[in-house]
């Protein structure tokens, strides 16, 4: 039957859930091997962090959408965690091939990396459902409160850190549909054009460090 916008949005939701049915909300055997290969095994920290972020996410979700929707928030979070572990495994496989290393201790013990990756995974899940709400003509739906950059505030993520995972996320998850890739591109644009320039942004610290380190490359001469 012809794809109406609502049917297309519902199809996106079914596809997202279908893609993740074979993925558990716990690390796979392959991920556990990567964890064990680390100088410092990050397994416990990763599990603990997912649990903590689950509590925070559910509370904020209920505040934004309605207390009776806390269970819905937990379901969204579970989908996000499934995608998080799936993409993490794919990222590590490609890094292993690219760098010819198997010990990712620094990366896998980097809390900002995990929070950003989980944040991006949840953004994909939320955008899929919000897309349905908007196409369903219920722009008043409380779920539209969850539009980007809501997830940055929930996890108190610096926009610049979230920005860093987007491209690798898109490369690592080939099943992402074009409209979702476009959504993540719009998130990037929003970060680069405004959010990254807020007064408390990491960007200013990085720019200061660059200036202190001195320019590695000579500035281009002005065009004549």
């Amino acid at each position: 039957p012809p794809q109406t916008p609502i049917r297309a949005a519902m199809h996106s939701i079914q596809q997202l859930r279908g893609e993740l049915t074979s993925n558990s909300d716990r690390p796979s055997g392959i991920l556990m091997v990567y964890f064990r290969n680390c100088t410092v095994d990050p397994s416990e920290d990763i599990m603990k962090r997912v649990e903590q972020l689950s509590q925070i996410f559910s509370q904020k979700f209920a505040q934004a959408v309605g207390q009776r929707c806390e269970g819905l928030g937990k379901k969204r979070f579970t989908l996000g965690v499934q995608l998080y572990y799936k993409v993490m495994e794919s990222m590590l496989k490609s890094e292993e091939k690219r760098l010819s290393v198997q010990n990712f201790s620094k990366l896998l013990n980097n809390a900002t990396f995990h929070t950003s990756l989980l944040g991006c995974s949840l953004e994909v899940v939320l955008a899929t459902y919000v897309g349905y709400s908007l196409k369903n003509g219920s722009s008043e739906s409380p779920e539209t409160n969850l539009c980007f950059p809501w997830i940055l505030d929930v996890f108190q993520l610096h926009a610049f850190d979230f920005y860093k995972v987007i491209e690798s996320f898109i490369k690592a998850e080939p099943t992402l549909k074009h409209d979702m890739i476009e959504h993540l591109w719009r998130c990037e644009q929003q970060i680069m054009e405004s959010i990254a320039w807020k007064s408390d942004s990491l960007l200013f610290e990085l720019l200061k460090q660059c200036r202190e380190d001195g320019p590695e490359e000579q500035a281009e001469p002005p065009a004549t």
Partner: peptide
């Protein structure tokens, strides 16, 4: 619709972006 423009060089990946190379 907009195509995504990949900007990372071949020698850049998530490890470098989080200073974990």
């Amino acid at each position: 619709t907009q195509d995504y423009h990949f900007g990372l060089e071949d020698h850049e990946g998530i490890s470098e972006l989080f200073d974990c190379d």
